[in-house]
């Protein structure tokens, strides 16, 4: 049998047999080389209670070249692209070793959720948010977990809208008052959200950003 196929089959089996780790691997189509990994958000983090899915592609030269992974579930995290789910993690690149497995790599992703590395960001805007105001960042990450990963607190969160619909202000990690303030000047609400998010209009930063600069950006 093809060495790559034997190895992948064994890896899939290992995950199935190991109930303790809570790591799941499923076939997406009928090929063992395109998989869906999933795990629960780690406890004590804003991702707690969420269920996260990862798209896994096994390259031809696996395991000598790293496995390709990206989040299917939208995640608000400095090392994960909020748009594409692309992941910035060394073992998925040059620190890959052929002895690493799907399970150990997924566990690494799980622990990446515990300990973001904002200095090596995949998503610069999210990283800025993380650096500026940890509590505001965590609130947003929790909101994303609730909206996208089936996390708890649908009615608990104050900013939460009616279940099912998303609150764009909370999604962007902004304060409703700030958005209202600029919207009142006659700008489109979604544009205000977009600009304030890009400018990282959060926490201590708010005091540093002149209203005129915001308006200037809004006029562009």
């Amino acid at each position: 049998m093809d060495a790559r196929l034997r190895r992948v089959n064994k890896e899939i089996l290992d995950c199935k047999n190991d109930r303790a780790s809570n790591i799941q691997v499923d076939l997406i189509d009928n090929s063992p080389f395109h998989l869906k990994g999933s795990f629960n958000g780690p406890e004590g983090t804003p991702y707690e209670g969420g269920h996260f899915e990862v798209d896994i592609v096994i390259p031809d030269s696996y395991p000598f070249q790293p496995v390709k992974m990206k989040f299917i579930t939208k995640v608000y995290h400095p090392n994960i692209s909020s748009a594409s789910g692309a992941i910035c993690l060394d073992i998925l690149k040059d620190a890959w070793s052929p002895v690493l497995t799907l399970k150990s790599t997924l566990i690494s992703l799980q622990s990446l959720l515990c300990s973001p590395e904002p200095n090596d960001p995949q998503d610069a805007e999210v990283a800025k948010h993380y650096m500026t105001s940890r509590s505001s960042f965590e609130e947003t990450a929790r909101y994303w977990t609730m909206i996208y990963a089936g996390g708890p607190g649908k009615e608990g969160l104050k900013s939460g809208a009616k279940s099912g619909s998303k609150d764009e202000v909370a999604m962007a990690g902004l304060e409703k008052a700030h958005v209202d303030q600029f919207e009142a000047l006659g700008f489109d609400r979604s544009k205000v959200i977009d600009v304030l998010r890009r400018m990282n209009y959060r926490g201590a930063n708010v005091a540093k950003i002149n209203d005129d600069r915001v308006v200037e950006e809004l006029l562009k």
């Binding site: 993690l89 060394d90 073992i91 566990i107």
Partner: peptide, 12 residues
Amino acid sequence: SRSRASQTGPRR
């Protein structure tokens, strides 16, 4: 290294 497996994964 930042490999997360180090805490839980099999160590050599």
